[in-house]
Design a protein around this nucleic acid. Structure first.
Lengths: 211, 211
DNA sequence: ATTATCTATAGATCTATAGATAATGC
DNA sequence: ATTATCTATAGATCTATAGATAATGC
């Protein structure tokens, strides 16, 4: 039983590390300029990895950037899982998710910029995030917490508003992010059929430590 | 008084036409693949214009694609102005705007794909669309039709949900677009503080011909 | 012995410009 | 006479690969 080593032998780990370096560099580029016409050479330099290695891991730049977006979505989803587990009320989950996202725009700008630039295109792809959100929505509908909504349309609206919050955080950094998140979450709860009074209260309920 | 000629002499019109050809080609590319790393040569070919002409109009590809997005937003805004003028109730405007957008995803796919790929980044820039939406929101707030919302946050949510509807249209073409638009508009109205019963009724009210 | 990484490079492609051509104004 | 467009091209850059090197497995 090894103490901390990831799976695979040293060879495979080394290979995986090179791949990760490429993905990390691609994520940085997506976050900073979003300009995917950058040369493979420039990406390899940023990754501090030999140029030719690229072809051991990816067939094209497109493939690399796809992997980078998937990686960012995965990390975002995992952060949600870690921070929001234990919240049972779907309405509270929405609020907490929005507030956490606003916070992450400050604490994890690189990750959130990727989301901002590429998130919309993955609203309905079957990444962990969309699946998870749909499940939470269905729980809320089944329990009667959410009413008068169709799951797919609600997923659409939830994703769109979340992205617009992220966009708002970056476009208007002078605004109070948490306040905007609470305000938007309240609106989204009403949208999901939560009575206005409840929505107001739930959105402002103290939340577990979001880290 | 000339019959149909746009402003400027023939020279200027010819010049303007070349520029338009570039913008049109750039819009097509944004709609089809969104891959802005396409070569200037390829763009010029698609525009059926000499390659060197590019530099008479734009300093860089980025500048061209910015112009292309602005052009699409402008056209979208003008379509709204044409089709939705005469609708006084801000709540009805929201519904009509959503339904019109869903329809345009079918009738003007090229335009709407540009919006889908680049719209989020222009939610808060001062293009005619955002300005117009903010004005309508403020009218609604002033008249009491919309309640419990902050204008900027509401603008954010409105833009995000609209984009998610467009995304939905393209990602799930098998769904009934108008139905989804009505359903989402109803949710958005609740979000804007319209009482659920009203929201249900208004979203389904017969609308003036949207063309 | 095997396999990934790295370096070097051929060939393809792209950008930006210079100079020729064509269209229009006056 | 003026100005935009077009063609041709120099120089820069990029991609994809071949072959050398380094790291690890067995």
């Amino acid at each position: 039983m090894s103490t901390s080593a990831p799976p695979g032998n040293r060879f495979e780990r080394r290979r995986a590390e090179t791949r990760r370096a490429f993905v990390r560099a691609a994520r940085q580029i997506l976050a900073e300029t979003g300009d995917t016409s950058v040369s493979i050479q420039a990406i390899a330099e940023r990754a501090d990895v030999g140029f030719g290695s690229f072809y051991n891991h990816f067939e094209s730049k497109t493939e690399l950037f796809e992997a980078a977006v998937a990686d960012a979505l995965e990390e975002f989803g995992q952060t949600f899982d870690e921070r929001l587990n234990g919240i049972d009320d779907p309405a509270e989950l929405v609020t907490a998710g929005f507030r956490l996202s606003a916070r992450m725009a400050d604490s994890h700008p690189e990750l959130m910029q990727v989301l901002r630039r590429r998130g919309l295109g993955h609203l309905y792809s079957d990444n962990g995030l969309a699946t998870r959100a749909l499940r939470d929505l269905q729980v809320g509908i089944a329990s009667g917490r959410f009413t008068d909504v169709e799951p797919v349309v609600a997923l659409s609206a939830l994703g769109g508003t979340l992205l617009s919050l992220v966009e708002l955080r970056f476009a208007r950094p002078e605004l109070d992010g948490d306040e905007a998140a609470v305000s938007l979450a309240e609106m989204v709860l009403r949208m999901l059929g939560v009575p206005p009074d409840d929505a107001h209260e739930v959105a402002r309920r103290p939340l577990p430590d979001l880290g």
